[in-house]
């Protein structure tokens, strides 16, 4: 069954295999670089997220892909759909901002300020498909603040993220895919 492959390995020699492994590693590394680069440009720790719950239906369904940005120069406004992560909670939540409270910072001056805005924001969010606001989801925090927010939703592609949900639900699929890719990378002949 694997005689063909073994024969190719013998023919190609160790150097060739090492080269293929190097190729594979560089593919993974460039993927990671793109991800981190995007992260840097958008100022968001994860600029692309997959919707995991139905709390924003009918706007977003499970498996939809969202593109986020989190520019320092912008304040959040009501109506914005934000992704936030409460410390201690394991998954980020995608919900809409319903209240903003901008408290002025005393003694803020433009030249030696640590924040670009003269205000600190307190936010309250709610899922479009939920009956009540998110106070109970905040785990004791009364208001959402900038530090909790991963980003604001700017772009949207439906269904694409379902692949990752499928991979999380069936881990075998993930290993099969990874293994298959690795094998392909090793044995692919130009």
């Amino acid at each position: 069954m694997f005689e063909d492959e073994i024969r190719t390995i013998k023919r190609l020699g160790v150097r060739m295999i090492l080269l293929q492994i190097l190729n594979f590693a560089s593919v993974i590394a460039s993927g990671l670089m793109i991800w981190k680069g995007l992260s840097l440009v958008t100022n968001s720790e994860s600029p692309i997220v997959v919707v995991l719950s139905g709390s924003m239906e009918p706007a977003f369904y499970r498996g939809d892909l969202l593109f986020l940005t989190n520019p320092v120069s912008e304040l959040y406004k009501t109506g914005d759909i934000t992704v936030y992560k409460i410390p201690g909670a394991d998954i980020p939540i995608v919900h809409r901002v319903m209240e903003t409270r901008d408290t002025p910072i005393k003694g803020w001056d433009k030249l030696n300020a640590t924040t670009p805005h003269p205000v600190t924001q307190k936010l309250l969010t709610k899922g479009d498909n939920n009956a009540v606001d998110d106070l109970d989801l905040y785990q004791g925090i009364e208001w959402l603040e900038r530090k909790h927010i991963v980003g604001k939703v700017r772009g949207f592609v439906p269904y694409v993220g379902y692949v990752t949900i499928a991979m999380n639900d069936f881990p075998q699929l993930k290993y099969a895919l990874l293994g298959g890719l690795a094998l392909l990378a090793l044995f692919q002949r130009e």
């Binding site: 406004k77 009501t78 209240e99 409270r101 901008d102 408290t103 002025p104």
Partner: peptide
């Protein structure tokens, strides 16, 4: 207190 509020 000068807090700017926007409430839906």
């Amino acid at each position: 207190k000068g807090v700017q509020n926007e409430v839906v």
